[in-house]
Design a binder for these strands. Structure first.
Lengths: 126, 126
DNA sequence: CAGCATCCTGCGTGATACTG
DNA sequence: CAGTATCACGCAGGATGCTG
């Protein structure tokens, strides 16, 4: 069986971990749940609520996007015009993944509030 | 460094990512759902189904365990005897997290089958 | 606007050896 | 048995500058 693709583990969890490894993947999918977004919009959306002082390196976002595309969670739609316009949207697979993230967020909202450092967060989950 | 705790994000997902960052954390929690396990048992359980050729460095497992403990997902029970005996078990918070992992596994089993390389998996999830 | 090319750094992870 | 100490490496990910 050689070494397979580092996915020889019968455990779905490992594959999941690899798939969403990266700081933005989950958030990207989540942001995409409401409809297609353009590159810049994703970028902006990612910054919203982030540390603030850190811009997202294009290389990083680009890579995450590509990885997600190869994972089959999202799809890339290039309009092939100038100025460039590219939209990313969830695939069927990606959409099926949204509830999972929802569960995660749900749990996180309930149990991670105190995990920070006494942070105040008036978020309403959705 | 200062830089806050990298948790200034109001997004539960980010916190979640940090919490389960690490190759074994999710699996540890999952394995612990059936009851307390000792250090060695966790280690053995982790190897079961893994690449096989890679032993888990004690340092790594130790760190994951400590991180999980500090996250409040698991608890450490030291029997204080010789030879040493230490058991790890899920906290209430940890237990509440199990369904989330379950959701992940569930999804993974259904949608990640084809993601590998034509892997066959006769697992029944539970 | 949507990326890619290059450099650099921190940390997660593995391997090995040692201790209470 | 249950860890800690030390060394080394690869890769995620940030910063900058450039292009179609």
């Amino acid at each position: 069986m050689a070494k397979a693709k580092t996915l020889a583990c019968g455990c779905p969890v490992a594959a999941f971990q690899k798939m969403i490894s990266g700081k933005y993947k989950l958030r990207i999918v989540w942001d995409l749940k409401d409809g297609p977004l353009r590159y810049g919009e994703i970028r902006t959306g990612l910054l919203r609520g982030s540390a603030g002082s850190a811009e997202i390196a294009p290389r990083v976002l680009s890579r995450e996007l590509k990885a997600l595309t190869e994972s089959g969670l999202i799809d890339r739609k290039d309009f092939g015009v100038v100025p460039p316009k590219v939209e990313y949207h969830l695939t069927r697979k990606g959409k099926s993944f949204v509830p999972v993230i929802s569960a995660i967020r749900n749990w996180g909202t309930r149990h991670l509030a105190e995990a920070g450092s006494g942070e105040r967060l008036g978020i309403a989950a959705e």
